[in-house]
């Protein structure tokens, strides 16, 4: 089972919910897909057991074969190629690794060449296995790393996916095959505005989903109201609590420090598990 944790807005508590859920559910794998700023490791502090460089394929030109026909330049939708004085220029950071130019070249003057854009670290933190995607500074596209992070998945295991913030391609890649989406929000207008964006996304993907309201304050009902109007189940409210802030700032996992919070995250996990099993049953009946 794959549980993806999303939030339209950065700083709502996506990583907080992810690491605490991974800890409370036990025997899970925590996957940090926020490859531009992976920080689940600050809390889980895994021992790194292996790492793997992630490469993308970019075109390499054989200038003796290239006839400067320009087909590749006109084809490239990412404008990663230019033709100047009959010489092909490749702008490697703009290349999206689609391979189209190589297929198209009538002279077979283009071949693939690997280029490292980042890495995946594998580790272990108590009962939680970790996978962390790290995009090198200056790189624009982290999707190949997310693809690698989500490749070796065994259906009987539990995965908690810490998605990138927002609702862009990288987020879509991270939830594509997941079984459930947790939408983390906070009870502010800004939080709800961005919740609406990820809600649209999970609806589009047809994913079972529920909201966790983080930093919940009695009487601040803007997030509750939105969920009620749109019939979105609220699976938990995590109170605004100085203690959580203090434990977080020390890089600790609050569910490990405080039984009350262990119970909240454990209950979130139980609810999701029931929901996913229920979905599985109703889908087979159809």
């Amino acid at each position: 089972m794959q549980i993806a944790v999303l939030s339209g807005k950065g700083g709502t508590g996506k990583t907080f919910v992810s690491v605490n859920l991974a800890f409370a559910a036990q025997n899970t794998t925590y996957i940090d897909c926020d490859v531009e700023e992976p920080n689940g490791g600050l809390f889980l502090k895994p021992d790194i057991t292996a790492e793997e460089n992630i490469e993308v394929m970019i075109p390499k030109v054989n200038l003796e074969k290239c006839t400067a026909c320009r087909k590749c330049v006109d084809f490239c939708k990412y404008n990663a190629l230019a033709l100047v004085n009959n010489r092909l220029l490749v702008f490697k950071e703009l290349c999206h690794d689609c391979g189209g130019c190589i297929l198209l070249c009538p002279e077979k003057a283009l071949t693939e060449q690997g280029r490292t854009i980042g890495k995946v670290e594998y580790g272990i933190s108590g009962g939680v296995k970790t996978r962390t995607g790290i995009l090198n500074t200056g790189e624009a596209v982290g999707i190949p790393i997310i693809k690698r992070l989500l490749k070796d998945i065994e259906q009987e295991n539990i995965y908690v996916i810490d998605s990138p913030p927002g609702s862009s391609c990288a987020v879509m890649e991270s939830i594509k095959d997941c079984d459930y989406c947790i939408l983390v929000t906070e009870p502010t207008l800004f939080g709800v505005h961005n919740l609406a964006m990820v809600y649209e996304l999970v609806k589009l993907f047809g994913k079972p989903h529920g909201v966790v309201i983080n930093k919940h304050i009695e009487g601040e009902t803007v997030a509750d109201d939105y969920c009620l109007q749109n019939n979105i189940p609220i699976i938990a409210r995590i109170p605004y609590d100085d203690r959580i802030g203090s434990v977080n700032s020390q890089g600790k996992i609050v569910a490990a420090e405080d039984g009350k919070y262990f119970a909240i995250f454990n209950e979130i996990f139980q609810k999701i598990q029931e929901e996913v099993q229920h979905e599985a049953v109703t889908h087979t009946e159809r």
Partner: peptide, 18 residues
């Protein structure tokens, strides 16, 4: 034509100038 490109507008515009 590069004005509305998602990325690489500068490259495409420069190509047109070349």
């Amino acid at each position: 034509t590069a004005a509305s490109a998602q990325g690489g507008a500068g490259i495409k515009a420069a190509q047109a100038i070349v």
